[in-house]
Amino acid sequence: MAEATGTTGTEEWQPKIVMFCCNWCSYGGADSAGMGRFQMPPTVRVIRVMCSGRMDPVFILNAFLEGADGVIFSGCHIGDCHYVSGNYKATIKYKFLKAMVNELGLEDERLKLDWISASEGERYAQVVTEFTEQIKKVGPSPLKPEGVI
């Protein structure tokens, strides 16, 4: 298991981050980041959804229960949504989810909503780097099941 996740006893703990990207902007942003060879930690697992408006609390809660240390949700910038108002809807749902996660007792840092456009490869790398640093500070998620690294 240690080999598979690239961690050994002496190495620093690497968080597991689930990132939901919208098909039209953020997923393109991830592509640009790769093509532009921007350096970022390999902590993020990207899941593509058609629109940030597709964000469902169940995805994020399930990610935490399955052992994610942090979750980022990203979509097109406000006003740029491919489906006109999907990201507005994401904002409202995020507000509820954030309040719920905070009341539940998970650290505020573990959940983040950010807008990344298809051309912002550098910004994508920056968001991932910063978020990874943030999660490293708060440590492994208390909701992580036993035996999951």
């Binding site: 609390p57 169940v58 809660l61 399930n62 229960l65 399955e66 509820f96 989810l97 719920m100 009341e103 539940l104 208390p142 909701l143 992580k144 099941p145």
Partner: peptide, 12 residues
């Protein structure tokens, strides 16, 4: 899981 997803969904 450490918590019931059923309730987590219903909380939101």
């Amino acid at each position: 899981y450490k918590m019931s997803l059923f309730h987590l969904v219903r909380f939101v």
